[in-house]
């Protein structure tokens, strides 16, 4: 049932918030270095699926296995540690700490993982360069454009060399050109370092950057490949 060689696999996820069912028997899998788009109408449970996969939300039922290890049963601290070391995140907006400079924002995951400040910021600066926003290093997020900010966020998601990057509508707040650029930077870099990307989006054009898509509808995640 579980595709061989999967890095992150979810089976039969169920999650309700109050009386609304966000996930109802959802399944998912991603291989190392694979970019998977999670698509579906709004309110279909895309984000909840992403939160469950990333160990942010504990599902009511079902399992999430990461690198052969069941993570739904882990404690909050263990899941936090896992997110720090193995996962990266990009959200639609409001994710950079406004009072930290861009380079400090990018260095944050490294520093949370125990890397010394100087070294963390040196690595962060390299990543900013790689994402073509080296000049924002000393600026605060409020002083850079939306596209630049999102690239800083991508840099932050990738800086700790995670195994999986979770991107929730990463281009949602950007214009087309900036969105395209962020997507190609994100997926190119992820592929180059064999990082899997779970990309939640409702835009097909953005989803076209993926290797494969799954559709979430009414809390059910369908993987067209696996159904076919």
């Amino acid at each position: 049932m579980i595709p061989a060689g999967s890095l992150l696999v979810a089976e039969g996820l169920r999650k309700t918030f109050g009386s609304t069912t966000a996930l109802d028997d959802a399944s998912f899998s991603v291989h190392p270095g694979e970019v998977v788009a999670v698509m579906g109408p709004s309110g279909s449970g895309k984000s909840t699926l992403l939160h469950c996969l990333a160990g942010i939300v504990r599902p009511d039922a079902g399992s999430v296995t990461y690198a052969g290890r069941e993570i739904t049963g882990l404690s909050d601290a263990e899941r936090s540690a896992l997110r720090r070391s193995d996962f990266g995140f990009v959200f639609q907006f409001g994710q950079l700490v406004p009072e930290l400079s861009c380079v400090e924002n990018v260095a944050l995951p490294l520093r949370l993982g125990g890397v010394k400040r100087k070294e963390a910021e040196r690595t962060a600066r390299e990543w900013l360069e790689r994402l073509e926003v080296g000049d924002t290093a000393r600026k605060r997020p409020g002083d850079v454009s939306g596209g630049q900010g999102q690239r800083v966020a991508v840099a932050r998601a990738l800086v700790a060399s995670p195994k999986v990057v979770f991107a929730d509508e990463p281009t949602g707040a950007l214009d087309t050109l900036n969105g395209e650029r962020v997507m190609s930077l994100l997926t190119d870099t992820a592929r180059r370092q064999n990082t899997a990307v779970v990309l939640v989006t409702h835009e097909t054009r953005v989803a076209a950057y993926s290797d494969r898509e799954i559709i979430v509808r009414d809390g059910r995640a369908r993987d067209p490949e696996r159904v076919a």
């Binding site: 996962f87 990266g88 409001g94």
Partner: peptide, 15 residues
Amino acid sequence: RLLAVLVAFGTGRAT
């Protein structure tokens, strides 16, 4: 929102 994001990428409660 920012707090939730910080938690998402593994910032501990203690921090």
